[in-house]
Nucleic acid binder design. Structure first.
Lengths: 110, 110
DNA sequence: TATATATATGAATTATAATTCATATATATA
DNA sequence: TATATATATGAATTATAATTCATATATATA
């Protein structure tokens, strides 16, 4: 399997859990600290921390520490790349230039 | 969570396994019977049968029986719908009309 | 009809991920 | 400085999915 395919699978695994999906959906609204996320989703703090660290390790989100708080946000470059890979998987050309990362541009050359 | 989101998660779960992903990739080349798939991927027959039945139950593929053989193929309507849902998730409008299923057209009205 | 081949299926096992629990660490505030 | 708050982390538990094993079923062919 190609690196692209392995990366897609990693993405699918990272987001195929209901709670992780909800966390990503919530972060789409904007940067949020852990305490806001776990209260909003009615999940316990430890569980959310574990999920956040998995999502961060997989590249879907970024963390920014400020005082006692850690603010997480979606990694837009990552999602732009995934979108590109996914459309490639479906056999389409890339259809948008805005948000293109270097990675997606390199992919277009292949 | 909306029905669309639950359907996307179901798709992510269905395809986030390496072997299932390989099966889908292989079927993208065209309809194949089980014996061709499991030999091509060097997996055992039972395992492939289990995966095929999971992929079929989730809607990603279709099966057609002919004599001793069962031929599987990707369900293009399903993938067209997933593409539509995925782009909605990423905040895009639908960008193509070809292959539109009734479902994606209904989705566009929301 | 007996036998071989293709596929499916249920139960058992193994691997992996999700969740919880206890607790550590860092920082802010009384 | 003592205490409260926000977050992370490792181990234990639980849930779920992947894989294997034994075998059943259907169909083609000798």
């Amino acid at each position: 399997m190609s690196g692209d395919e392995l990366r897609l699978i990693k993405f699918f695994k990272a987001i195929s859990d209901e709670n992780k999906f909800k966390i990503i959906s919530s972060l789409k609204e904007g940067e949020k600290c852990v305490c806001v996320i776990f209260k909003e989703l009615s999940l316990n703090q430890t569980l959310v921390s574990h999920h956040l660290s998995a999502l961060k390790a997989a590249g879907l989100i970024k963390g920014r520490k400020s005082g006692k708080w850690v603010y997480y946000s979606v990694n837009k470059k990552y999602f732009a790349e995934i979108e590109s890979l996914f459309n490639k998987l479906l056999g389409h050309e890339n259809f948008k230039n805005e948000n293109d990362t270097i990675n997606t541009m390199i992919n277009n050359l292949c």
